[in-house]
Amino acid sequence: MSSGTLRILLIEDDRLDAELIEEMLDRRLGQSFDIENVLRLSEGLARLETEEFHLILADLGLPDSSGLETLQRLHKKTEIPILVLSDDNETVLPTLAVRQGADDYLAKEDLTPDTLVRAIRFALERHAHRRTEQALARAQEQFRIVRRIQERLLPNIDVSIPGYDIAGTIYPAEHASGDYCDLFSMPNGCVGFVVADVSGHGLGASHLMLEARSAVRALVHQGVALNEILTCLNELLFDDCLATDHFLTLFIGRLDPTCHQLEYASGGHMAYLIRSSDKLERLRSTGPALGLIRERPVGSRVLPDLKTGTIFVLPTDGIVETVSIDKTLFGIERLRGFIVRNRHLSARGIVDGLYQAARDFAGHLKQHDDITCIVVKIL
Rank of each mutant, 00 (worst) to 15 (best):
Q72M: 03
Y355G: 06
V220D: 02
T249V: 08
L116E: 12
R126C: 13
E151L: 06
K76P: 05
L345M: 10
A176N: 12
M270L: 12
G30E: 14
R121P: 07
L16G: 14
L233M: 12
A18K: 03
E109R: 15
C241D: 03
R40E: 08
C373A: 08
D13I: 01
R27L: 15
Q150K: 03
E263K: 09
R27Y: 07
L16S: 15
Y180N: 10
I319P: 01
V159F: 06
L314R: 00
Q261V: 06
L116W: 11
M209I: 03
E321I: 07
M1S: 15
L273R: 08
D278T: 11
L283S: 02
L71K: 00
E36P: 04
M1G: 15
Q142C: 07
A102E: 07
T322C: 01
P288G: 05
L55Q: 07
D104C: 11
I252L: 14
F338T: 02
I21R: 02
G168T: 02
Q140T: 08
E36M: 06
C373I: 10
L74G: 01
L68D: 04
A58R: 05
P155I: 00
K377R: 04
F122K: 09
M186S: 09
D370I: 06
S277F: 06
L62C: 02
E109L: 12
E52L: 13
G204F: 05
S32V: 13
L379I: 05
K377L: 00
L16F: 15
E321N: 09
G337V: 05
R138M: 11
R144A: 15
G4D: 15
F143W: 08
K307P: 07
L345W: 02
K76H: 12
N234L: 03
L124H: 11
F184I: 12
L20I: 14
R348S: 14
P315W: 00
G202C: 05
Q100H: 11
S66W: 08
R40F: 11
I120C: 04
P315N: 00
T70A: 01
A271L: 11
G204N: 10
S32I: 10
R152I: 08
A196C: 07
E125L: 12
I35W: 02
L280E: 00
Y180H: 11
G30A: 09
G202P: 06
V375Q: 04
A18Q: 05
I166L: 06
I80R: 05
G253R: 04
C259H: 15
S276E: 13
T70K: 01
A128P: 10
K307I: 09
R282Q: 15
L45R: 00
Q150F: 05
L41I: 13
L208A: 05
D88L: 13
G267N: 02
I56C: 04
S86K: 01
D182H: 08
Y355A: 04
P315E: 02
H127F: 13
R301S: 07
K77A: 14
